[in-house]
Amino acid sequence: MGTQRPVIELTDIRKTYGMDGNAVHALRGVSLTVPTGDYVAIMGASGSGKSTLMNIIGCLDVPTTGRYLLDDVEVEHLSDRQLALVRNRKIGFVFQSFNLLPRTTALDNVELPLVYAGVGTTERRKRARAALELVGLSERMHHKPQELSGGQQQRVAVARALVTAPSLILADEPTGNLDSTSSSDVMALFDRLHRAGRTIVLITHEHDIAEHAERAIRLMDGQIVSDERNGERGWISEQHTVRHGSAR
């Protein structure tokens, strides 16, 4: 793995909210490298700092200190405008609550990042159709979000994340609002994308979702407490295995 070029390279990332007196340290020195093509699950209880980490990886927020290289671009000191550009070009977001624009067709939703990238209408349409085809929704591209099921909405969101061919797909609890059937549909989609060579970072607190990934990183109190590859000893969690009474 070490031979591959890293997509994400975090070095001693710290994030502090608030003033000196009652400062909250959300991240206390996180270092992490994600090579191209990796499939990583970031796990942790609420308050562990995983949302903060996801915001920083997603360039929605900047770290207080530390160094962040995204695709060889140093992003920790970028301006708002430059961060918007990086988000547009390098990151495809998938959110827990889908976050599609209401009253807007699936096709228009998928086109949206391309609009901000300045892609022309014809090219945009072509690429958005291809992305929707990839997630198996070419039949429903003219439907609006309220006319689609949760699973379908999330697949539209995945298509939207894919359409700009980003360096990184960042999914924040992508199955959190889905039933088990839709969940496995969406996770099958991520698995397929991984096999196609995409770099995927999943934020989740569900073990069975994290099991899809190649690598699991556990956060606690703003620090990485474990970083394990699929198949290694202790993969995912002992407690999980015990609780469910069955080994993988």
Binding site: G58, L60, D80, R81, A84, L85, V86, R87, N88, R89, F93, F95, N99, L100, L101, P102, L112, P113, Y116, A117, R160
Partner: peptide
Amino acid sequence: REIGIRKALGAPR
């Protein structure tokens, strides 16, 4: 929320 979505997808200010 819509503004947030647009910004996350890379809409500049």
